[in-house]
Amino acid sequence: MSKPVERNRAADALSVCDPVWDRLRAETEEMALSEPALASYLHVTVLHHKGFNASLAYQLAQKVGNSEVRAMQLRELFDEALRDDPSIAEAARADIVAYYERDPACHSYAQPLLFFKGYSALQLYRVAHWLWTHGRRAMALYLQSRVSELFAVDIHPAARIGKGVFIDHATGIVIGETAVVEDDVSMLHGVTLGGTGKEIGDRHPKIRRGVLISVGAKVLGNIEVGEYSRIGAGSVVLQTVPPHCTAVGVPAKLVGCAGCDKPSHEMDQMIVETDGPAI
């Protein structure tokens, strides 16, 4: 075992209070008892480890490792990132809670880590972003490519994404290089945060806190979607959306208020349309 892995496990063992890990581990123990065929997988992925960081690094490495770049090499890399930047694991924990609270199909903290590709893709982005900011751009782009191949999720490692983010189903997600996604955002499959093709430099959307972006929506250009707003399914948003508003259509127009105080938490996509200005 490498010394970085040993140090990371030691740091995990010293954690005196980690309610996410404690609950996730207890749920995994119950799962192993109820489904013996998965017991070996659950043991090596979760139950063998002393803490959340070690388990997360192992799981991500197993997902993206292959014959060219081995899982053990990637595990050491992920251990290094988690050790160097504690905010990565903090965000990963917050994302698990977001999945559990917002996804009616998620019944435990263990499910996102073990089974949800959107969660895995998001955590691999976080490591790729760490690599990007540390000048290791080739490896960052390699991880981006592997995630795109495996999960049909394409997040540029230079994008900036907050914590408590929920990406449901995840297939077809595209997030561009200069995009910003703040804390507590929820988005569904087929969402694009892209450029218009006419801009260079800072050319991607800025999604503020608490926004809900529904299935297949496209938000294009260096525009802002204000905090606690909603973007309806299939919409194409080309202009800034004010805070606490709902935008729907092609091209999108404002159709009233966001429908609730925290749309990304409520996940309420029902829209009562009223006359509103094109945006």
Rank of each mutant, 00 (worst) to 15 (best):
M270N: 12
V211F: 06
Y100I: 04
H169M: 03
V20K: 12
D12C: 02
E149G: 06
L60E: 15
H48M: 10
Y109E: 05
A170P: 03
I96D: 05
F116L: 15
K206N: 10
A61G: 11
G234T: 07
R203Y: 05
A110G: 08
V147N: 03
A26M: 02
K262S: 02
T45Q: 13
D79M: 10
R126N: 12
G118A: 12
H265E: 14
D154C: 07
C17H: 15
A71H: 13
I167Y: 06
L47S: 09
K50Q: 15
E35S: 14
A258F: 08
S34T: 07
L212N: 11
D12H: 05
K163D: 14
G232D: 00
L38V: 00
G65A: 11
V165Y: 02
F116I: 14
G164T: 08
K3Y: 03
A57F: 00
V64G: 09
G172P: 02
E68C: 00
R230P: 07
S108Q: 13
G118M: 09
G201P: 05
K218D: 02
R160A: 07
L122T: 07
Q59S: 11
G221P: 03
K218E: 09
S55R: 12
A10L: 09
S55G: 13
I96T: 11
L60H: 13
S40I: 08
I173P: 03
Q59T: 10
G162R: 04
V255D: 10
I175T: 06
D202K: 02
A81N: 08
Q62C: 12
K206Y: 09
T171S: 05
E177G: 13
N66H: 01
E80Y: 13
Q73Y: 04
A61P: 00
A26T: 07
A11L: 15
N53I: 02
H107A: 01
K198E: 03
C106F: 06
D184E: 11
L74M: 10
A152W: 00
L47A: 08
I213V: 13
I88A: 14
I88D: 13
S148E: 08
L14D: 09
D154M: 09
